[in-house]
Simulated assay, not measured.
Amino acid sequence: MTNPEMWPEDWGAGPPDVLRGAVPEPRLAVADAPAVPVPTWRPRDLQDVLDGTYKAPQPTIGRRDDGVPLFYAGRMHSVVGESEGGKTWFALLSVAHELAAGNAVVFIDFEDDAPGVVGRLLALGASVKDISDRFACIRPEEPLTIGLNRLEIGQALNDLRPTFVPIDGVTEGMAMHGLELKDNTDVAKFGRMLLRPIAEMGAAVTTLDHVVKDKEGRGRYAIGGVHKLNGLNGAMYVLENRSPFGVGCTGKSTVRIAKDRPGQLRRHALPHSSGLHWFADFILKSHDPTFTEASLYPPVEHEGPFRPTEVMKKVSDAVAGAAEPLNVRGIEARVGGKKDVIATALAFLVDEGFVEVKPGPNRSKLHSLIKAFEAGG
Results as ranks from 00 to 15, higher is better:
51 D>A: 10
121 L>N: 03
329 R>S: 14
122 L>A: 12
85 G>I: 10
305 P>A: 14
212 V>W: 04
221 Y>N: 12
192 R>W: 07
268 H>R: 08
218 R>F: 01
342 I>Y: 01
328 V>C: 01
58 Q>K: 13
231 G>N: 03
292 T>R: 15
164 F>K: 01
149 N>C: 04
274 S>V: 04
75 R>A: 06
219 G>D: 14
102 G>L: 04
12 G>D: 05
78 S>A: 15
270 L>N: 06
110 F>N: 02
162 P>N: 06
349 L>M: 07
243 S>I: 08
177 H>G: 00
226 V>S: 11
322 A>Q: 04
57 P>D: 05
149 N>S: 13
375 A>Y: 01
367 H>M: 10
374 E>K: 15
292 T>L: 14
179 L>M: 15
363 R>F: 11
246 G>S: 14
224 G>Y: 01
126 A>R: 05
87 K>G: 04
50 L>N: 06
6 M>C: 09
349 L>H: 05
41 W>I: 11
24 P>T: 09
6 M>Q: 12
24 P>Q: 11
244 P>D: 07
341 V>R: 12
351 D>C: 06
265 L>W: 02
338 K>D: 10
210 H>E: 08
251 G>Y: 00
194 L>C: 01
193 M>N: 00
262 P>E: 05
268 H>T: 06
7 W>E: 00
219 G>H: 11
325 P>E: 08
179 L>E: 00
72 Y>L: 07
212 V>Q: 14
52 G>R: 07
199 A>H: 06
150 R>G: 15
326 L>C: 03
119 G>C: 05
108 I>G: 05
340 D>C: 03
238 V>E: 10
252 K>W: 14
252 K>L: 12
107 F>Q: 04
356 E>K: 14
114 A>W: 03
103 N>A: 14
258 A>T: 07
223 I>A: 11
90 F>A: 03
168 D>V: 09
289 P>H: 09
278 W>K: 08
184 N>T: 11
140 P>L: 10
359 P>S: 10
340 D>L: 10
142 E>L: 11
108 I>Q: 03
294 A>G: 13
137 C>L: 12
333 A>V: 09
354 F>P: 01
279 F>G: 02
79 V>N: 08
291 F>W: 11
224 G>P: 03
188 A>E: 13
106 V>M: 08
352 E>S: 10
319 V>D: 05
277 H>V: 04
356 E>V: 12
250 T>Y: 00
254 T>W: 11
206 T>M: 12
367 H>R: 12
137 C>M: 12
136 A>Y: 02
143 P>T: 09
211 V>I: 15
248 G>F: 07
22 A>H: 05
147 G>W: 10
65 D>Q: 13
197 P>I: 08
268 H>W: 13
144 L>H: 00
234 G>P: 02
121 L>H: 02
214 D>E: 15
366 L>G: 12
294 A>H: 06
88 T>E: 07
328 V>E: 10
200 E>K: 14
252 K>G: 07
207 T>P: 03
17 D>V: 11
